[in-house]
Amino acid sequence: MTNTLKNLTLKVWRQDGPNTSGSFETHTIEEITDEASFLEMIDILNERLIEDGKEAIVFDHDCREGICGTCSLMINGQAHGPERGTATCQLHMRKFSSGDTIVIEPWRASAFPIIRDLMVDRSSFDRIVEAGGYITAATGGAPDANLIPVPKPVSDAAMDAAQCIGCGACVAACPNGAANLFTAAKITHLNLLPQGQAERYSRAEDMVETMDSYFGSCTNHGECEAACPKEISIDVIALMNADYRKAKVQNRKQLSRT
């Protein structure tokens, strides 16, 4: 069941800081079992680097379960690597074979400045959420949870969008460096739910315009969907576009009529 990979060549991006220029550094992994996860392979490499008195490769990771959205590697030209619907941390060496050359790069986007080596700063995502990615609900004042029924299909659709782990792979994969999938996923999650209606249009407007100040534009390449570890569909982008358009023309004083 388990077998061993031999002679992998890693080309890893090393860069000292945000304002310095970086370059690829080549390492070889003589052998490793395919049970290992991709990040465990880098752990092992780092152990070796430290033993040789070199600095370990800096990369972002935490939960290693594909849920926190911290891990973020461009592997052989694909965000999160070759396996569909999988975050970097869940990628296992099974997906590779002996003798492979693996190129590892950080996410690249002006809104994701490189901090060091493979680690980037994704706070621009937080700014988008801060702009309106919430439902204003003061603590304590909430009515009984079952007061507003939410049809199952609706809550399922909201959940599909809400699954976004904020990893930034959509931006990394998008040829235009657009964050439409992330922003649309956040907007869709809240705008589909009854609780989200009151702020629906201001939310769409504020979040889209904040997104605009950091990221590129969507020309519907669909790369983001392919890279998304949660396989969020670009349908949400259409939804966002529609809500943004309505936000501009809606008479918000009469929303309750519709």
Binding site: Y134, I135, A137, T139, G140, G141, A142, P143, D144, A145, N146, I148, P149, V150, P151, K152, S155, D156, A158, M159, A162, H189, L190, L193, Q195, G196
Partner: peptide, 22 residues
């Protein structure tokens, strides 16, 4: 009990039944 009310009000998409209840 307040926690569930609070989180639902904030838009947490808890699993629902077909009738729309939690």
């Amino acid at each position: 009990v307040n926690i569930i009310d609070q989180m639902v009000a904030q838009g947490v998409p808890f699993a629902r039944e077909y009738g729309g209840m939690l």
